[in-house]
């Protein structure tokens, strides 16, 4: 069963068609990469899935339910979490608080409970903090828990963002250029983390990335967009040989 099914999705900005009749699916335990030149419509497609952009036509279904009419926070609560190309972390919060924000929907303390500082409100917060710390520890970044997010290094920021997105155990993760600006060893580590999540936790991942070797190594399927349209789709090796892709993406 497909986790996510995008059918004939079209996103328009006035006269400009940013995404044109795009259809694809995402499955649990698989990495699907979206590649293409700048302005191809990759991030717009991400935004449409996350509810930040409205579809002009077409549908998006997640776990067999239509989500293209929902707001971003409703879609997030259904189990689609994303990371951002730039600046997605909350710089004025610590790394730990960032992850706690990721757990927002799982902290059910009531307004009255918080005001009265009741035992149950404290217990809920404590449990969430424990979970957040455990997640940071799993990614090997527990030591930065109390640091302001804006003071972290590029690699640490990316890890915190991924931990934050994964905090609620979402079935589908959207990663927008996760490898950008990362040093080779950190990239390798990130690649291993993504593969581990997909293979062991059975999470579905959709990935936008320009680092072609990263994409080729980590992905199960690659979809190539150009001018808002899908020009090729297939396994990494097929895409590497595809003439249209080489022309559009590599300018050859």
């Amino acid at each position: 069963m497909a986790l996510l099914t995008v059918t004939n999705a079209t996103v328009q900005f006035g006269g400009l068609i940013a995404v044109n009749q795009v259809s694809f699916g995402a499955e649990p335990g698989k990495v699907r990469a979206l590649i293409g030149p700048n302005g191809a419509g990759k991030t717009t497609l991400f935004k449409a899935i996350a509810g930040e952009e409205q579809l002009a036509s077409g549908t998006i279904h997640f776990q067999d339910q239509a989500i293209h009419t929902l707001t971003p926070h409703e879609i997030s609560a259904r189990g689609i979490r994303r990371t951002f190309q730039t600046g997605g972390l909350f710089g004025e919060l610590t790394a730990l608080e960032n992850v706690l924000t990721g757990l927002h929907t799982q902290i059910p303390s009531s307004f009255g409970g918080l005001l009265a500082n009741t035992r149950s409100a404290k217990a809920v917060e404590k449990a969430a903090t424990k979970k957040a710390l455990k997640l940071l520890d799993l990614m090997g970044i527990a030591h930065v828990a109390e640091q302001w997010a804006r003071d972290l290094s590029g690699g640490q920021k990316r890890m915190v963002e991924i931990v934050r997105a994964l905090a609620t155990d979402p079935p589908l993760l959207l990663l927008d250029e996760p490898a950008v600006g990362l040093a080779p060893p950190v990239r390798l580590e990130l690649m291993n983390i993504i593969r581990r999540l997909v293979d062991e936790e059975n999470i579905g991942v959709i990935l936008i990335e320009h680092a072609i070797e990263f994409v080729m190594t980590v992905s199960d399927t690659i979809m190539v967009l150009n001018n808002g349209e899908v020009i090729a789709e297939g396994a990494p090796e097929e895409i590497r040989q595809n003439k249209d892709v080489l022309e559009a993406y590599l300018g050859r």
Binding site: P72, S76, G88, F90, L93, T101, G102, H104, T168
Partner: peptide
């Protein structure tokens, strides 16, 4: 604070 820092990212965390 999440909204102050990045409204879109806050919504993406499930914050209404």
């Amino acid at each position: 604070l999440a909204i102050k820092n990045d409204e879109n990212a806050a919504a993406a965390m499930g914050i209404p």
